[in-house]
């Protein structure tokens, strides 16, 4: 579904992503794990068209999107829940959802909103509230709900557990699993490697901008070296 081949991304003179390749197949949950600064978010931002790769190719559903404008990708079924949630804080919860469905018709949005409310009752309770006043967990659910509004084929999530209490982290990962079981394909970037591996099918480990390991998520959980390096022993 998504294939990334040999991308190289620079911030000025800093070489942030080095020759990275990976793929995400239909129906999978794939996770990119690695320490802070390993280039995980940069990769997602490059796939989304917010950054450009100097080399290589990114294809989504058979289309080359390496140089596509970011705003066109939403219409192709690719959605990106950015790091730090990035909800529109001055808008109401409902307006945030409508932004998620910006490219779709009013009727589609109405239906999609109902689905989101059903999945996230908390979001429904607060639908007329200004989004900036929500708690961190509620904001993350809103960000996920907003992403679902565009009826995505592939959902990319950047650090959905960031800054959340353990209970909420559990809840968010429960939702990720449910979404995947309901047929969504997911590309997940996480620092919380243990949680990420528990929901993912396959995993790529990144280190200073390079893929250093690719394997099934289950195997990696058993791997002693990985345990030491990323899972805290």
């Amino acid at each position: 579904m998504l294939s990334v081949e040999n991308i190289n991304v620079y911030y000025g003179s800093i070489h942030a992503v080095k020759d990275v390749s990976f793929e995400v197949r239909q129906g999978e949950t794939v996770t990119l794990i690695g320490a802070n600064g390993a280039g995980k978010s940069t990769i997602l931002r490059t796939v989304s068209g917010l950054l450009r790769s100097k080399t290589g190719r990114i294809t989504f559903l058979g289309n080359d999107i390496s140089s596509a404008d970011a705003y066109k990708l939403a219409g192709m079924g690719l959605t990106h829940v950015p790091e730090g949630r990035r909800i529109f804080r001055h808008m109401t919860v409902r307006e945030n959802l409508d932004m998620g469905g910006y490219i779709r018709s009013k009727e589609d949005n109405k239906r999609a909103r109902r689905d989101v409310y059903e999945r996230f009752p908390r979001v429904r309770e607060r639908k007329d509230q200004i989004a900036g006043t929500l708690s961190g967990g509620e904001q993350q659910m809103l960000a996920l709900g907003r992403a679902l509004m565009s009826a995505p084929r592939l959902i990319m999530m950047d650090e959905p557990s960031m800054g959340l209490a353990p209970v909420l982290v559990q809840q968010i990962f429960g939702i990720i699993r449910e979404l995947n079981e309901a047929g969504a394909t997911i590309l997940l970037v996480e620092q919380n490697a243990r949680m990420a591996l528990s929901v993912a099918h396959r995993c790529y480990v990144l280190e200073t901008g390079r893929v250093v390991m690719a394997s099934d998520a289950g195997d990696l959980l058993e791997d002693d070296g990985v345990k030491k390096a990323y899972l805290g022993g």
């Binding site: 989304s48 068209g49 917010l50 404008d69 970011a70 705003y71 066109k72 990708l73 939403a74 219409g75 959605t79 990106h80 950015p82 990035r86 529109f88 804080r89 001055h90 808008m91 307006e95 409508d98 932004m99 998620g100 910006y102 490219i103 907003r146 565009s150």
Partner: peptide, 24 residues
């Protein structure tokens, strides 16, 4: 209007607005 919402979205966070499909 949806154009108005897009304007507010761009004003608050143009990058995220793009991810929503807004032509900034």
């Amino acid at each position: 209007t949806s154009m108005g919402r897009a304007m507010r979205a761009v004003s608050e966070d143009d990058e995220t607005a793009q991810l929503m499909g807004v032509n900034v």
